[in-house]
């Protein structure tokens, strides 16, 4: 078959909502786009462990400590599923990690902001996991099978994280004036970075059109951002805290909330590496990887010795 035929078949399959599996033919750009998208997501999961892991030793109660440990462990699990999904496209986890460590690959910029208070565990669960769900639920129907299946598992856990984060915020908002102020402060700091999580406006976004055609993206950045705002405003009202946007108001005509302009200069600066924690996050990941090298080597050496022993026994 000529490539054009293959490509036509491929697109027909996608249009018919059939899944593409690892052994199926796929255009090289589809493969590359998927590797970029899945690995970026995987990297976000493991870098995202750092700002929350930061509070494990300081959680205010044993119940909260256990829940936070479980949450961060879930995120590590998400990273693992996603690296495995990426590996089905013929790229190794080592290669992907190298790309992260050298700065070639990106991860979600939100994790370059610091977690300076306990309330941030609430705000992250509520807003950041909340935004992740908006992004990810449509991906449960992504055209690439292993990715879609990974997303199904992940989304279940993310919605649990979102509820848990909201519950932390709710406890604070029902607490003393100091606690309520903590909740408000966390919302003030995490609101705008959460909106930025959906990426540049559609007019500025390079990848959207082709990705929508390939069904590895089902909604545009702006559509998802709007959904998130619409879902989150009533939740902030329940909490009795104020979203830090004077332009936020219900638009009867559109049936959506209008919201103020996002500071894209800040967004691009953080993407470029100039956020408050970019360097620390990368240093922590690289250090973990380098410190772990002797462990990985030893595990390999031991496994080799064992299989050698086995062959000798057989012979």
């Amino acid at each position: 078959m000529r490539t054009t035929h293959l490509e036509d078949n491929f697109q027909q399959k996608i249009d018919a909502e059939e899944r593409i599996e690892p052994k199926d033919w796929m255009p090289e750009t589809y493969r590359k786009t998927l590797i970029r998208q899945i690995s970026q997501h995987a990297h976000s999961e493991i870098v995202g462990m750092l700002p929350e892991g930061n509070w494990i030793t300081r959680a205010p109660t044993l119940r909260r400590k256990a829940a936070l440990l479980a949450k961060v462990q879930d995120e590590a699990g998400h990273g693992l599923y996603l690296y495995c999904a990426a590996e089905t496209l013929g790229v190794s986890r080592d290669t992907l990690l190298d790309e992260l460590h050298t700065g070639k690959a990106k991860y979600s910029s939100i994790f370059n902001y610091p977690t300076i208070a306990w309330a941030d565990m609430g705000a992250i669960g509520w807003l950041v996991d909340g935004a992740a769900i908006m992004n990810q639920v449509p991906l449960c129907r992504a055209s690439y099978g292993p990715y879609a299946r990974a997303m199904v598992r992940i989304c279940k856990e993310e919605s649990f994280h979102q509820r848990q984060g909201f519950e932390i915020m709710l406890t604070l908002s029902k607490g003393t004036p100091t606690q309520k102020a903590m909740a408000q402060d966390a919302l003030n700091r995490w609101w705008w970075p959460s909106l930025m999580m959906f990426g540049p406006n559609d007019a500025e976004s390079q990848h959207t059109e082709q990705s929508v055609r390939w069904k590895i993206k089902r909604f545009t950045n702006d559509e998802l951002r709007q959904k998130f705002v619409d879902a989150t405003v009533p939740q902030a009202e329940i909490l009795g805290i104020t979203i830090p946007d004077p332009d936020l108001k219900w638009n009867e005509e559109r049936g959506h909330y209008d919201f103020g302009a996002i500071n894209w200069d800040e967004f691009w600066q953080v993407v470029k590496g100039n956020g408050p924690c970019n360097q620390e996050r990368m240093e922590a990941r690289i250090k973990a990887h380098e410190d772990g090298e002797w462990v990985r080597e030893a595990a390999m050496a031991y496994a080799n010795k064992q299989s050698q022993k086995l062959t000798e026994q057989v012979a």
Binding site: I46, M49, G53, L69, A76, L80, G292, E293, V295
Partner: peptide, 22 residues
């Protein structure tokens, strides 16, 4: 063990140590 979370030699060991902490 909770101090290891996010800093393990591999993702699998990170998960195991966090799990023990839990």
């Amino acid at each position: 063990l909770g101090e290891w979370c996010g800093h393990g030699p591999t993702l699998e060991q990170d998960i195991a140590l966090t799990n023990f902490a839990l």
